[in-house]
Simulated assay, not measured.
Amino acid sequence: MWAALSRGAANRCPSCGQGTLFRGYLRVAERCGACGAPVGRIRADDAPPYFTIFIVGHIIIPLMLLAERGYAPSLWTMAAVFLPLTLLLSLALLRPVKGATVGLMMRYGITGREHDPRGDG
């Protein structure tokens, strides 16, 4: 499980660890270039943004509380510091979190098409 998570977070195929997982910023490649694993069939949907918001919130909120308690900056200063920090942290973490989610889903055989009426799941 940890291998699949770390490989996915590093933009590598969760199966072999050799091929790249993404072909764009967040678009998952159809197949691994090295082992041919069908990683493009796995649909992470809303899980990566949810996990990213959860992680970023648990980083930013304590920092905001510490800054407020220790320095009592103005509202504009807080906004000028923490809004860009939140945006940058979210953008930096979204891709590794999606890769880790795809790796975890692949490890457990979850493709998102288990109940597909066409039967190709």
Rank of each mutant, 00 (worst) to 15 (best):
M1K: 12
W2N: 12
L5I: 15
L5Y: 11
L5V: 15
S6I: 09
S6H: 08
G8R: 01
A10C: 13
A10Q: 09
A10G: 07
N11F: 00
P14H: 14
G17H: 10
G17F: 05
Q18I: 12
L21I: 10
R23N: 10
R23W: 02
G24C: 09
G24L: 04
G24H: 12
G24W: 01
Y25E: 06
L26W: 07
L26E: 07
R27D: 09
R27E: 02
V28C: 10
E30M: 00
R31F: 14
G33H: 11
G33V: 04
C35W: 01
G36I: 00
G36P: 08
A37G: 05
A37V: 04
P38V: 00
P38E: 04
P38L: 09
V39A: 06
V39G: 06
V39S: 11
I42P: 03
I42V: 15
I42H: 09
I42Q: 02
D45S: 08
D45I: 01
D46V: 03
A47D: 15
P48C: 05
P48R: 12
P49M: 01
P49Y: 02
F51L: 08
F51N: 01
I53R: 00
I53E: 01
I55R: 08
I55N: 03
I55D: 01
V56F: 00
V56D: 05
G57Y: 06
H58Q: 01
I59E: 14
I61G: 02
P62R: 09
M64S: 06
L65C: 11
L65N: 07
L65A: 15
L66Y: 09
L66T: 05
A67D: 13
E68W: 05
E68R: 03
E68Q: 09
A72N: 09
P73R: 08
S74P: 11
L75W: 07
T77V: 11
M78G: 13
M78I: 04
A79W: 09
A79C: 12
A80D: 06
V81P: 09
F82H: 04
L83S: 10
L83N: 06
P84G: 08
P84Q: 06
L88W: 00
L89F: 01
L89D: 05
L93G: 14
L94W: 03
L94N: 09
R95N: 13
R95Q: 03
P96F: 11
V97C: 04
G99E: 10
A100N: 10
A100E: 10
A100T: 10
T101E: 12
T101A: 14
V102Q: 10
V102K: 03
V102D: 00
V102F: 02
G103F: 14
G103D: 12
M105E: 04
Y108N: 11
I110F: 09
I110C: 13
T111H: 07
G112F: 10
R113Y: 15
H115M: 12
H115W: 08
D116K: 12
D116T: 04
P117Q: 02
P117I: 03
R118P: 08
R118F: 09
G119K: 06
D120A: 06
D120P: 08
